[in-house]
Computed example of a mutant assay.
Amino acid sequence: MLLTLAWGSLFFPGLFALCTWGLRRARPGWTSFDCVMISTRLVSSVQAVFATGSGIIIIRSCSDVATDRHWLAREYVWFLVPYMIYDSYAMYLCEWYRTKEQDRRHSLTTFRNFLSQNRLMITHHAVILFVLVPVAQSLRGELGDFFVGCIFTAELSTPFVSLGRILIQLKQQHTLLYKVNGFLTLTTFLFCRILLFPFMYWSYGQQQGLSLFQVPFNIPFYCNVANAFLIAPQLYWFSLLCKKAARIFDTPQPKKDG
């Protein structure tokens, strides 16, 4: 545990510092905010690839979805803890550079604006650290790692979300890449963050001889409540993505002269 925590504490801030340094050298015309923001997105994408890969390995190794265990489930949770702490600071650092470039003084107001504008994401990080980590590591009893692996795969959409933010920062919203990435963002988010929950219910039902609709009535009530709390913010974020996608594809094309 301690070794994994130490590796995570070194890896994510170190990768962020390396990316920021590299971008400043490669793109001297970019602002500090550009470099920091893009570095933050790159590190998030790397973490998402690690999490998704770990989740796939865990899922494929668990033939019994209710009881099978895999060492990677426990270890990656510990690797994730430093990332959540680092990412919270990185988001604040982005806000600090953004306000600095707007000639605003760094003060308590900046911190308040950061909390106000990132309420849902900060809450998301806090729930992972103070609720999901204890549940995954000790409070779930004999429940197997299949479901932990499924939750890890929810990160598959993160690289596409990050690329979209980077393209916006670089003012590339008009490009085909931006539209294709928007479609991939919606698709991966739908399958890995929304349909993931019915998939977990279906997998359990297949093993227990239950239909998908019978599963909620044959598992502990707190499992349904926990899943409801997990999927609620995903549905909200998905609705925002859909609205954004509608604006992208409904934008009228400029008329050609003649």
Rank of each mutant, 00 (worst) to 15 (best):
A6Y: 09
L10F: 13
F11G: 05
F12M: 05
P13Q: 13
G14L: 09
F16V: 14
A17W: 11
A17L: 15
L18V: 13
C19M: 14
T20C: 11
W21Q: 15
G22L: 14
L23S: 12
R25D: 09
A26T: 10
R27A: 08
W30N: 12
W30Y: 11
T31D: 14
S32C: 07
F33T: 11
D34K: 13
C35D: 12
M37W: 11
M37G: 05
S39Q: 08
S39T: 09
L42E: 06
S44H: 03
V46Y: 08
Q47H: 14
V49F: 06
F50P: 00
G53E: 01
G53V: 00
G53T: 01
S54H: 00
I58W: 01
I58Q: 00
R60F: 01
R60V: 00
C62N: 02
C62M: 01
C62A: 08
V65Q: 01
V65I: 03
A66G: 02
T67Y: 11
D68M: 02
R69F: 02
R69V: 07
H70Q: 08
H70D: 03
W71P: 06
L72H: 03
Y76D: 04
Y76G: 06
Y76K: 04
V77I: 12
W78L: 06
F79Y: 09
F79L: 13
P82W: 11
M84R: 07
M84G: 03
I85R: 00
I85Q: 01
D87A: 04
Y89E: 01
Y89T: 04
A90Y: 03
L93T: 10
E95G: 04
W96H: 10
Y97V: 02
E101Y: 08
E101P: 10
D103C: 11
R105V: 14
H106M: 06
L108D: 04
T109K: 07
T110N: 15
F111L: 13
R112Y: 08
F114E: 07
F114D: 09
S116K: 11
Q117E: 14
N118D: 10
R119N: 07
R119T: 12
R119L: 13
R119G: 15
L120I: 15
L120T: 09
M121K: 10
M121T: 10
H124F: 11
H125G: 07
A126L: 14
A126I: 06
I128Q: 05
I128P: 02
L129Y: 07
F130M: 06
F130L: 12
L132E: 10
V133M: 05
V133A: 09
P134E: 05
V135P: 00
V135Y: 09
A136V: 05
S138G: 03
L139A: 12
L139Y: 12
L139N: 05
L139Q: 11
G141D: 06
L143V: 10
L143K: 09
G144I: 02
G144A: 03
D145M: 00
D145T: 02
F146I: 00
